[in-house]
């Protein structure tokens, strides 16, 4: 017995507002994008004839295809960097750091920026990366360079540097969660049976954290693919990835083209999530 009985019809009443809200604000808009991407003609009307021309036009443009490839490459690079770095940090904080006070302090230092505006954090990289930026000033002062290096701002390097600082926590968090679930007895058993530390890690610890790794990779992938703000802030107007293209087309009133790019972006993301689900059954995570 509780304040809400099992299978109570009142549950539907309680769930209805949230369900209606999500259907209106998330599901319907997504389906609408799909529909609009097939609209022919010029007017914004539901009477538009359906056509695949919008897709043909986009897919026949080599520049746009290159952009799709670039976006995927950027995501792959960040998945690798954030994945390795995030795993190392998660492992250190959960397994190596024994002092609880230090652990809390470092954990907070790791997590707190995540609670502040991602936009401000992206902007904070700009004074760092410029020709007169902090990195160049440091390089000159240290004598590591005799003239300012220009590769940082308005470049893919700079974008990757900022994204690395923004998204490593997403790769790290799920791994930390999985590491905390591993009973210490498992590692002790392996060590008692004379497995060297590296073997214990590779054969016992790593497989148990694999779901966390995969979820982290999915989060980084989704966020990098959808990230237009970092790209716009640090890349200036010189660099655009798939997500920026949606915005550019939209601002240029090319609604159909924007919808096409949005659908392609969605397809990339769905493919990524589907691939991840083949490796890990997310529903079994709670167990």
């Amino acid at each position: 017995m509780s304040t809400i009985p099992l299978r109570s019809p009142r549950a539907y009443l309680l769930a209805l507002p949230a369900a209606a809200w999500m259907l209106t604000a998330v599901v319907a808009p997504t389906l609408l994008i799909l529909w609009v991407s097939f609209w022919g003609g010029r007017a914004f009307s539901t009477a538009s004839p359906l056509t695949t021309q919008n897709y043909e036009r986009f897919l026949s443009n080599a520049t746009y295809l290159q952009l799709v490839l670039d976006s995927l490459k950027q995501a792959a690079l960040l998945m690798l960097l954030c994945g390795v770095l995030g795993y190392c940090i998660a492992y250190f904080l959960s397994m190596k750091l024994r002092n609880p006070r230090w652990r809390t302090a470092l954990l907070l230092a790791f997590i707190i920026p995540f609670w502040t505006s991602a936009l401000i954090r992206a902007i904070a990289w700009v004074p760092f990366l410029g020709v007169n930026g902090v990195i160049n000033q440091a390089l000159l002062w240290l004598g590591l360079a005799d003239q300012p290096v220009e590769v940082f701002l308005y470049s893919r390097t700079g974008i990757s540097m900022a994204q690395l600082s923004l998204y490593t926590l997403m790769a790290s968090g799920p791994v930390m969660y999985m590491l905390a679930q591993i009973p210490p007895a498992l590692r002790e058993a392996a060590m008692t049976l004379k497995a060297p530390p590296l073997v214990v890690f590779w054969r016992v610890v790593f497989p148990l954290t694999l779901p966390g790794v995969v979820i982290g990779q999915v989060l980084v992938f989704l966020n990098v693919m959808a990230d237009f703000a970092t790209v716009a802030t640090i890349g200036g107007n010189k660099i655009a990835l798939l997500a920026n293209l949606v915005l550019n087309f939209y601002e240029g009133s090319q609604i159909r083209a924007a919808a096409v790019v949005a659908v392609l972006l969605m397809l990339c993301m769905l493919a990524g999530v589907a691939a991840a689900l083949r490796v890990v059954d997310i529903r079994r995570l709670g167990a």
Binding site: A18, A25, V27, A28, L32, I33, F228, L265, M266
Partner: peptide, 19 residues
């Protein structure tokens, strides 16, 4: 359905709702 709101990128949700 609720999890979808978490996974769906803001860019697409915003664009779709504007439409």
């Amino acid at each position: 359905l609720l999890l979808l709101g978490l996974m769906a990128p803001g860019l697409l949700v915003g664009f779709g709702f504007a439409l």
